[in-house]
Write a protein that binds this DNA or RNA. Sequence first.
DNA 1: CTAGGTCCTAGAGCGCTCTCTAGGTCAACT
DNA 2: AGTTGACCTAGAGAGCGCTCTAGGACCTAG
Lengths: 141, 141
Amino acid sequence: MGGLSIGQVAERTGLSVHALRFYEREGLLADAVRRESNGRRVYTEDDVDWLNMCIKFRSSGMPLDTIRKYTELVRQGAGNEADRLALLKSHQDYVRAQIEELNECLNVITWKVDFYQEHVDAGTADCLWATPSTQTASEAS
Amino acid sequence: MGGLSIGQVAERTGLSVHALRFYEREGLLADAVRRESNGRRVYTEDDVDWLNMCIKFRSSGMPLDTIRKYTELVRQGAGNEADRLALLKSHQDYVRAQIEELNECLNVITWKVDFYQEHVDAGTADCLWATPSTQTASEAS
DNA sequence: CTAGGTCCTAGAGCGCTCTCTAGGTCAACT
DNA sequence: AGTTGACCTAGAGAGCGCTCTAGGACCTAG
């Protein structure tokens, strides 16, 4: 393993090469990416690991800004572990809240799905309700 | 209960008056909002219920476009229940997938939180690791 | 009569996260 | 020599979901 090209990293992480360059510009990479003599980026496996963590952060709704802050803390080196912990904990809370909220939404949606499922199963699939007003009333509830 | 003003609806739903007008323009309301003689909107409790559902849809990641499609189906009246069901089911799947993804993220984050917690608890909070390289290695994993 | 508050429309602007373009370098194949 | 394909930079553009502004109407209390 003698370093990866941007294309290879894109393939492994699922990020586009554009996104990889963008993330770098935005300061989301813990280590400066090395370059070949011709200016091309050379990534290490550590870079890929770091990116995969960024992806987890992102897909759990952490803004790039916060990822950047975390990255800066790590770049500063030892001594700020409490700060990193605080940042991570706060995000942990946020993710938990998101999950809770999604579960509530899921309940509502499931209730509606079941409602429609029953009626679609029962009838032969159309004209189940007589009047538009009945319709709206059951919809809105 | 003789109808609600946009301000009252904003208060109850948590949406801004701007957002309420925006949603209406975007065709997210099942019934056309009535107007007073002077042109001001008059909402019913049903409108509020509908909006609350839209909010559930939105906060579980349904795009406005899809909410609009659903709204159109409901506006068309009885006969397309299977379509509505399909739309709702597909969103249900999406929400479940989101929850699953968030749980995965939460695991990773919790792992990191625990890692830092231990070390912050153990040391007196700084200089826990000797070298920046050790640092980065444990970070990247 | 005036000031304050709520409402109206139409449309511009914003924050975020990419995504894509233009214009170019470089190395390898045919 | 020419073509292909991966890469480079800087910066414009796009999609989404609001949010806000401008300019104005109307109502009520002081």
